[in-house]
């Protein structure tokens, strides 16, 4: 009988310890998470140099073909690259990689960097064409970038959206963005 009681109390103690442990872990993880630099770096298949291309006279819409007339900006396909790079035009190693991929017929699997949260409707057309917002406002100065951005320039949080909407007198109705 006593044994049983003892055992129970031990188990109770163990349970208490466990809870304590979990609590400590929680607090530690919470603090860590708060100060942890949140920078998931995104690696693209080709280290595309925006600066060079823009300097060479390319427009945003040459590669991001959809941004002026749809919700989405669009990413360049292998065909778009092949228009100029079917043969190497420089001695860049990234270009060599591209030419290699093109010759093998591999698709270019760009990774999406900017991503609005779920249930949010974002239209490039509305912002870039109707709202006349510069690309750089959300994407930074791409003409200075020599490598693809590893992370979004703009933090896609509701606060940031709302702030901007308020500044520009755009709608802050939930329905204007949420889908």
């Amino acid at each position: 009988m006593a044994d049983t009681v003892q055992q129970e109390s031990q188990e109770e103690n163990a349970g208490h310890r466990n809870r304590l442990l979990a609590g400590k872990a929680f607090v530690a993880a919470f603090l860590l998470a708060l100060i942890w630099p949140f920078t998931p770096s995104i690696e693209q298949p080709i280290q595309y140099n925006h600066q060079k291309h823009i300097a060479a006279g390319l427009e945003c819409s040459n590669c991001h073909t959809l941004y002026e007339n749809s919700a989405w900006a669009g990413l360049p396909t292998a065909d778009a690259c092949a228009a100029c790079h079917a043969e190497p035009v420089t001695d860049s190693s990234e270009e060599a990689k591209l030419v290699q991929m093109l010759s093998e017929g591999k698709p270019l699997e760009w990774k999406q960097v900017n991503r609005v949260p779920n249930h949010v409707y974002f239209s490039h057309k509305t912002h870039a064409v109707a709202g006349e917002i510069e690309c750089a406002t959300c994407h930074g100065k791409m003409d200075e970038r020599t490598a693809p951005p590893p992370a979004p320039f703009f933090e896609w949080s509701m606060d940031n959206c709302i702030n901007c909407h308020e500044d520009r007198n755009a709608s802050v109705d939930c329905n204007a963005c949420h889908r």
């Binding site: 919700a71 409707y121 109707a130 889908r179």
Partner: peptide, 30 residues
Amino acid sequence: PDVSVRPKGVVEKCTFCHHRLQKARANAIA
């Protein structure tokens, strides 16, 4: 792609295809 896929645990209903209004309005403004 204009409409959310709703997760488990939320309520959903007819929206009068509100996303179509969003697109129509974008066109109108443009």
